[in-house]
Write a protein that binds this DNA or RNA. Structure first.
Lengths: 138, 138
DNA sequence: TTGGTTGCAAACAATTTGCATAAAT
DNA sequence: ATTTATGCAAATTGTTTGCAACCAA
């Protein structure tokens, strides 16, 4: 039995075929397909010959998000994209011209964010930071 | 003639009633209604007795965004919110418990963002940073 | 006059939900 | 056997578009 099997049980989700397939897909997602929309996942599964419904993909992704297995991002342009949660937090840079997504993490920025929230009497629950960029004119 | 009149001409938009009304509404928006969705604007105008269509509100807001008169934000939860562009750039902090929105600006973070983008060979076109917070447990 | 603008209804895209059926424990 | 999950189609939500009537320049 695959490791996905265990992961699902661990978060209290019944082990079903759709869930296993979606989880495998996201875990093995290559660099370029690291961030996938529900539609992306759905089409990938269809192409792999798996017979899942789009509604199920949405349901499963939402459950995974709640369970902390995946992270949902709302970049500009309406639809959400998901990526497997690898434990590490990072922010994103989206190239407006190529669509490339670069992940980065900056300790200094993180601590400044906390400092600012604290200054206003708040604790940070979560945050999103996306830099929309273009290749720098050399 | 109101000042909105001039502002519209300045950006090359024909002066029409819906545009004037939407612009006035956003300019006079109180602190709590500083950030409004298209629906918010639509309902506010209806309550004020103005007879505009929701589609027109969307069109006008999009035109204003293009013209730089307003800024559109995509906070979590699907719909967009707009605010009059007062020239100054700032980021947001959204309280998950009260819905309060705090605006802030941090020079240090801004420069770090540019430094990071540059490190990856990019220029920043735009960025969004939203801190989702809760009142700090005292 | 004449082209830009509006309102309304229909069209859309992304996501959610109801429900009868199918599968997991 | 029970309970939960799935697939499909229909329903929602937020936003856009086609088009005839309308208004600003």
């Amino acid at each position: 039995m695959g490791a996905e099997n265990q992961e699902l049980r661990k978060v209290g989700l019944k082990v079903t075929l759709p869930r296993i397939k979606v989880l495998q897909l996201l875990e093995n997602a290559s660099d370029s397909s690291h961030h996938m929309s529900a539609e992306d996942v759905y089409k990938a599964l269809l192409e792999a010959g798996e017979d899942v419904g789009l509604a199920t993909v949405y349901r499963v992704l939402t459950q995974f998000e709640t369970a902390g297995l995946v992270v949902r991002h709302n970049f500009e342009g309406g639809h959400s994209v998901f990526e497997i949660a690898k434990g590490d937090h990072h922010d994103h840079m989206v190239c407006m011209e190529t669509g490339t997504i670069v992940e980065f993490y900056d300790d200094e920025i993180e601590s400044l964010q906390h400092k600012i929230a604290a200054k206003h009497g708040y604790d940070i629950v979560d945050h999103s930071m996306v830099l929309y960029v273009k290749p720098s004119a050399s």
